[in-house]
Simulated assay, not measured.
Amino acid sequence: MATKWGDRDARRRDILTAGAALLADKGYAALQMRDVAKGAGISPGTIYTYFPTKEALFAELYAERLHLLHNVIEPECLSADDPAALFVLVATEYLDVYRIYGRELNIWSLLADIGAAESSAHTESLASAARKVLAVLHTSLDRMYSAQPEAERVEITSALTLLWATITGLSDQFTGARQHLHTHDWDAAAQFAATTLTRGLGLRP
Rank of each mutant, 00 (worst) to 15 (best):
G169Y: 08
Q173I: 08
I156M: 08
L162H: 02
P149D: 13
T175C: 14
Y145E: 06
T166D: 01
V154I: 15
L170P: 05
A151C: 10
L163Q: 04
E152F: 05
S171V: 09
W164S: 05
T168V: 14
I167D: 01
L170Q: 08
A165N: 13
A165M: 12
T157D: 14
L170A: 09
A159P: 01
L160G: 05
L162V: 10
I156S: 04
I167S: 04
E150V: 06
D142V: 14
D142A: 15
S171L: 04
Q148V: 07
A147E: 12
T168N: 11
V154E: 10
S171P: 01
F174H: 08
I156K: 05
S158M: 10
S158R: 11
A147R: 15
Q173G: 00
T166N: 06
A147P: 02
F174C: 01
L160F: 08
A147H: 11
S146H: 10
Y145L: 09
R153V: 04
A147Q: 13
I156R: 11
L160A: 05
Q148L: 05
A165H: 05
T175P: 02
I167E: 03
I167G: 03
A151S: 06
T161S: 09
Q148H: 00
V154Q: 09
Y145S: 06
Q173F: 09
W164N: 03
